[in-house]
């Protein structure tokens, strides 16, 4: 799954006096529903098994979230 299209990034201000090692780039979630004002009919659907696994009948609205992304 390609999550990157549902993520945004920004580079916060970094001070030379930051006490902790600064994170130069922060990532945040832009979930798919933000880009769909009204769902169109006839979107591609998951198989029932895949829908149960993903939590959505429509793959278009699945963006996933993994600890490994390091968002927090």
């Amino acid at each position: 799954m390609n999550q990157s299209q549902f993520r945004g990034t920004y580079r916060p201000y970094v001070s030379p006096r930051d006490p902790c090692p600064p994170i130069l780039e922060k990532t945040f979630v832009l979930p798919p529903q933000l880009f769909t004002n009204f769902q169109k009919p006839g979107l591609p659907q998951n198989s029932p098994e895949e829908a149960l696994k993903q939590g959505s009948l429509w793959p278009q609205f699945v963006d996933g979230f993994y600890r490994e992304e390091g968002i927090s």
């Binding site: 990157s4 299209q5 549902f6 993520r7 945004g8 990034t9 920004y10 945040f28 832009l30 933000l34 880009f35």
Partner: peptide
């Protein structure tokens, strides 16, 4: 404005 940051890396 934040939505415009979508996929910026690419």
């Amino acid at each position: 404005i934040l939505k415009e940051e979508r996929d910026r890396k690419k």
